[in-house]
Structure formats: structure tokens, C-alpha cells
Amino acid sequence: MTLKVTQLVGGYSQIPVLKDISFEVKKGELVGLIGLNGAGKSTTINHIIGLLTPQKGEITINGNSLFTNTQEYKKSIAYVPETPILYEELTLKEHIEMTIMAYELEKTSAWDKAQQLLKTFRLENKLDWFPANFSKGMKQKVMLVCAFITQADLFIIDEPFLGLDPLATRDLLNLIEQRKSDGASVLMSTHVLSTAQEYCNRFVLIDHGKLKTSGTIQELQAEYGHPNASLSEIYLGMTQGDGV
């Protein structure tokens, strides 16, 4: 088992945004975190990566929590933000070097991985450029490269599909598949429900800061009562009050 969120209550201020959220992401699983704008997806992610402190409840990764074993906890996460965040003064190469240093990765093998990823995302001839001046899609690819050279157990990817070209989307999905088979787990928030339905093993549906339901697509379909319903139909049905 990798990520375990138990009865999480939290938010940015005293008034909680998240109310009693619990779910798990197991080893080798891709879990889709689904919700409308403002449903609490990003807040949940911010709690997991440690930017926010839970008011109640607990988050553990491989049994470590942020408070009992900070360094281990942080080391096991790789995060790809929705909006790319880059160091303005660092070149692409230096972003990778920075990641290698920060996560204390073995240099040669990490660079091998990086070269491969750079090639996949067609960035290999941009090493000496400032990514801060790249287009949004390219910036996002830089974020992906930096995240996927780490040896994280848990990848947290916030809305990856907007801004990536179809080729990069496919490459990202392959990459996720590969990491899953290596035993890592992935939590991905997205609005692109059709892609999510196709690739995610399980889903966590949240609405208004509450957990609506979670499970595999079959479980959700059974719960919703329509064995052939798409994820999108299920989600819309559930958030609009009919259904469950």
C-alpha cells in the first residue's frame, strides 16, 4: 500500500474545504481524482504534498507521515503541478541537475533517464535554454521530465492533459504505465473523463469537499445502476443529485 488518506479535514483557513475524505492509492495503481472546479481536488493534493496541514485526519505514504518522517515522506513524492512552475534563472539542464541534487539521485543513471525522457518529449536540443520562456506545453514537459527522473513511489499529477499535444499525451500515458509496472503508484486529477476512464484503475469522486464515492469503473457503474454508463455520465449524475 502506498498512499493512505484517512478522514482528512482541511483547507486554507479555519473553515474546512475538505470534509472527512478517505481513500487509498495502492502499489502499481493509477487513481483518478475527479471533481468539478472548486470541488477540492487541488486542496486534497496540496494536503498530500504537504503544503497544507490537515486539521484532522492523517495522510501516510508507505506508513510515513509528514510529521513522523519528513525527509522520507518528501522523497517518496514526485509532483507535476497543473500550471508549470519553473525557476526563472535556471536552464533546462540546471533544472534537471537541481532535481538530481535535491533528491540525492545517482547522477549517471538519473541523467540516462533524463536523456531518454528529453528525447521522448523532444526537448533534447533545448538543454541550455531557460524553460521559463517556453510555451505552456513545453513547460509542462519539463515538469514531467523533472518528476519522472526521481525514484518516487507516488506520482501526483495535477490535470496533465490540458496543454499537452496528442503525441505528448500518449507518451505521458506510456510513461505512467511503465512506472506502474515498476511498482509506483499514481494519483492524477483531471477533467478529461474519457481518457481517465480508459486509463485509470480506480476513481475517487469528490464534490463540495466531500467524498462522493470511489472504486473501479465497474463498481461505480454498479453503484449508479447503469452497467454501461460512462464515467462522465456517472459523475454528472452523481453531482447533480440524482443517482445515488
Binding site: 504534498i49 519528513t70 509532483y79 512552475i85
Partner: peptide, 13 residues
Amino acid sequence: YENIVFTHLYPIE
């Protein structure tokens, strides 16, 4: 770099 999320994510005290 306080507002760059990675500054907080890196496993460095």
C-alpha cells in the same frame, strides 16, 4: 523562491 512549490517539496530541511 518561497512561492515556488518545489522549494517546499524537495526533501531538504
